[in-house]
Structure formats: C-alpha cells, structure tokens
C-alpha cells in the first residue's frame, strides 16, 4: 500500500511502486481526466502537477512521489473557475478535447511561474503538449486571456 496526496486528499493505493502515476490516477484512484497519449513523455496529455510543477505522469513511477502533492485537472477548481479554465471556455479552445487536460495543466503551471507570459514563454512552456486537432492558436490566445483574468482578480 502506498499513500499519495491527490487534489488535497490522501489516497491509499495497492499498486506496484513502479506503476506510472498516470495509470494509478486513472485506474486505481478513478480520475480519468488525465489522459494517455504516448507513454514516453512526448505529448503532454498526461501532465499533472507535483507540488505545482508540471510533470508527465506517464513516466513518473508512483513510488517516486513520496509526500509531494499531486494536482490533476479535476483538482484545479471545483467549478471551472480557474482563470485558465475560464479563458478556455471563453475562447472555445477544445476540439476533440483529448489533449486539453494536459494543455490546461501545462498552462496553469506556466502562469503560476510567469503571470504575464510572452509568446516565447508560451512556445517554451507549451511545446511539450501535442494537440492533434491543432488548437494551438486558441491555446496561445487563451493563455494571454487567462493572464488578464487572473490580473483582474480582486
């Protein structure tokens, strides 16, 4: 038994410590918002935060996590009220939507580090996330918009 902290709650999971976090989240914890795209840290679909840092959960053995706090797309906000989610809705970013959990987790991590990112910052932070539907232009605009929304906050 391993205990991991997911979205603020401790969860005990009975899995081999070598199991990638992605599959623990999806199949053991039951949080399926985090997606599988490549299993090789090539696409970013599986991105979650460990203590606020974006990681590719498909190559992160669950046993290596220790007490780090895991945040998944489900833990970002209870009601889609995170500025990134708001901006994503406002600009209608998703198409098939499959990559979007990972895109949003990368974008939120970027904005936490860099509240007013430049296009170059966005290129760097987001180039690990593939969108086969090609929503990049809207993602870029939505990140700028999210920065604005976050700035408006009282």
């Amino acid at each position: 038994m391993l205990t991991i902290n997911v979205n603020g709650s401790d969860r005990s999971v009975d899995v081999d410590p070598e199991t990638p976090l992605l599959w623990v989240l999806r199949d053991a914890v039951g949080l399926t918002g985090t997606k599988y795209g490549c299993g090789m840290a090539l696409c970013g679909a599986c991105t979650v935060h460990l203590d606020g840092q974006p990681v590719r959960s498909c190559v992160t053995p669950v046993g290596s996590i220790g007490a780090a706090k895991i945040t998944t797309i489900e833990g970002l906000s209870p009601d889609r009220s995170h500025p990134v989610q708001k901006a994503w809705i406002e600009l209608d970013v998703p198409q098939c939507g499959y990559c979007q959990s990972g895109q949003i987790m990368s974008a939120t991590a970027l904005l936490a580090q860099t509240p007013k990112p430049t296009d170059a910052d966005i290129d760097t932070a987001m180039s690990g996330n593939i969108c086969r539907c090609g929503t990049y232009q809207r993602i870029r605009a939505a990140i700028h918009r999210a920065a604005e929304i976050a700035g408006e906050k009282p």
Binding site: R26, D27, G30, L31, T32, G33, T34, K35, Y36, T72, I73, E74, L76, S77, R80, Q85, W88, I89, E90, D92, V93, P94, G97, Y98, Q100, S101, I104
Partner: peptide
C-alpha cells in the same frame, strides 16, 4: 455559440473511449 462540449472538456469530465468504466471491468 460556444461549443456545448467545452465545459466538460476543460475539467476532465468528458468521457472518451479510454475513460469508460463498468462494474467488474477488467483491462
């Protein structure tokens, strides 16, 4: 109109084929 599936696609709740879960399901 903004897409009707957008909300479910920004909070991880949209169910894709990979997300299906049935009682007693194996993989």
């Amino acid at each position: 109109l903004t897409r009707f599936d957008t909300p479910a696609k920004v909070d991880g709740s949209a169910i894709f084929g990979i997300d299906v879960k049935l009682p007693g399901m194996l993989y």
